[in-house]
Write a protein that binds this DNA or RNA. Sequence first.
DNA 1: TCATATTACTTAACATGTTAATGGTTTGGC
DNA 2: GCCAAACCATTAACATGTTAAGTAATATGA
Lengths: 154, 154
Amino acid sequence: MSEGNRPEAPMRDFSRSLPMALLKAREAVMDRFRPSLREFGITEQQWRVLRALYGRGEVETGALAGLCCLLTPSLSRILKHLEATGLVSRRPAPSDQRRTLVTISTAGRALLERRAPLSEAQYRAIEEAFGKERIDALYSTLGDLVEALEKTNS
Amino acid sequence: MSEGNRPEAPMRDFSRSLPMALLKAREAVMDRFRPSLREFGITEQQWRVLRALYGRGEVETGALAGLCCLLTPSLSRILKHLEATGLVSRRPAPSDQRRTLVTISTAGRALLERRAPLSEAQYRAIEEAFGKERIDALYSTLGDLVEALEKTNS
DNA sequence: TCATATTACTTAACATGTTAATGGTTTGGC
DNA sequence: GCCAAACCATTAACATGTTAAGTAATATGA
């Protein structure tokens, strides 16, 4: 017991890991959505991209990454795949050749509209299992948490 | 109005995606922990494994995966890496050769004990930014959500 | 206007997420 | 004891997460 020996805080209980708690909750939710994603032959991230593009016209890659909570290297690969399967299209921005503008295609919209009802059904099931008020409160709490963390991120 | 065409529910607002809300919150939290993980040359998942093994003696691979919220293929690769760097050890279970028992090594414990204070400092910062009561309430809500979803997962 | 820095996206490299398949081990029925 | 079924971990294959490096286009300033 020397140099730097403050009273050795006991190790935090493993059940009190905030990243783990958020991950476990997210996994429990995703378990409800994965079957229909698989049925449509699309990944969770690909779905997020289509979902973000829907009804939004042309979106820059950087902005799209922010909307989908994806890093740009991941998004780059995902867009290559979505473009190859004809669900989105890309073109350089006329005013600034560095930027890329992404648009959802008709096929992309069609896929979205076919799966959306299945997704909505799962949301109803989740709200029934947990309570709509508690879900609403959870959205609110999570938003506040993000705001608090971003505001103070030294 | 025929077969299946109910009145076309409007597309859910993209801000009301529960997986996204949980992901964004988790990312905001992880941004606080990543610097020290990097400093110690370890990934988030490797940390979770060491964290789960600490003070637990020998743990079976399957049980460890459950504790860490990892799938067994991922855990298999992670353990190979941790074993190669001397942070854990593995051996087949004497009573059942199918099972593998994992133990944290002295070096693993040492790494854990060196980083733990940095992690705790971040927890204090998060509680200060958001409020300890709200964090506690969030743990509780997330646990309830998982329970509700698992109980009703048809 | 020219060199420099900055910006936006992409590639590269390695680790993990996810599903399916493989390969030993053990269990159960017979 | 024998064989099929179930089990556990690992491997395989492809997609994404993460950080660093690369590339082309634009902005900046002397």
